[in-house]
């Protein structure tokens, strides 16, 4: 009996973690043919990263095309593309070796575009610079604001970037830019990004695409993949398989 691809990818991940950071290339692949638009990834990510209301690292967009009765309906999950040439990094005024956002080249998070909340000045320039709307400012609100009682689970710390951050009392990352980070904190522990593990259609793939034995590498090789807004030259690390030209709908 075959394994669930979640287990296969986790085994791939274990293998990747044995490699040196510079030999690894984290990538995500989304097969939209298998996405049913359930938003489990969206909400799983909100809960995992303790995101405030209206802040989504992993929105899912729906598109309906055609005329009755010849209709098409598809969904596009859109995390941060972790671009190899990220426009957001260029837009950030806090530069240098201790900058607020950068293209990581070391450690578990190598290849990802992280944010150092402690250094972020909250100017929002990266938010407008991102062509994928992958960045959002944390306005400090909570889901149970306006109800009889703020609930304890919201005050628990998230584990983003392997740090314990508590948003209550305006702690970090309130007032800062926030974005998807491929769940580095889970990768470090041999777990797949949240959006991948909770995908009920098994539409998401994640792993070290430089490992030819990995599932993501094999799936990528076996299909024609697309990236979003290719012309911008951002070189995304998130690939798509789709029955349609995504450029046309999402360009």
């Amino acid at each position: 009996m075959e394994k669930d691809i979640l287990i296969v990818m986790q085994e791939d991940l274990e293998r990747a973690l044995q490699k040196r950071a510079e030999d690894r290339r984290w990538a995500m692949l989304i097969d939209t043919r298998k996405c049913v638009g359930c938003h489990a990834c969206t909400i799983g990510c909100v809960s995992e990263n303790k995101l405030p209301p209206k802040l989504y690292y992993r929105p899912v967009y729906e598109y309906e095309r055609g005329k009755f009765p010849r209709v098409k309906r598809s969904w596009l999950p859109r995390p941060c593309m972790q671009c190899d040439r990220p426009p957001c990094v260029g837009a950030c005024p806090v530069k240098g070796p201790d900058g607020a956002t950068w293209k990581e080249s070391k450690g578990i998070g190598s290849g990802i575009v992280p944010i150092n909340y402690a250094r972020c000045i909250g100017c929002g320039k990266c938010v407008t610079a991102c062509p994928y709307q992958a960045r959002t400012m944390d306005d400090g609100s909570f889901h149970t604001v306006g109800t009889p009682q703020l609930q304890g689970y919201e005050a628990l710390s998230a584990f983003e970037y392997g740090r314990r951050l508590e948003r209550k009392d305006k702690g970090l990352p309130v007032g800062k830019a926030r974005k998807c980070h491929f769940c580095i904190h889970r990768l470090a522990n041999g777990m797949l990004p949240q959006c991948i593990t909770t995908c009920i259609g098994r539409a998401g793939y994640f792993g070290d695409e430089s490992d030819p034995g990995s599932l993501i590498a094999q799936v990528k090789k076996g299909h024609k993949v697309q990236v979003l807004k290719k012309k911008l030259g951002t070189e995304p690390r998130v690939y798509y398989i789709a029955d349609e030209k995504l450029e046309v709908i999402h360009g």
């Binding site: 489990a40 799983g44 149970t144 109800t147 703020l150 609930q151 304890g152 909770t198 995908c199 098994r202």
Partner: peptide, 22 residues
């Protein structure tokens, strides 16, 4: 512990029913 299964958005948010302020 490090093997998570997949659940829908309702399951992902299930604790909010328990922690309902009402």
């Amino acid at each position: 512990p490090k093997v998570d299964g997949a659940i829908c958005a309702k399951g992902q948010s299930a604790h909010q029913g328990a922690y309902d302020p009402y």
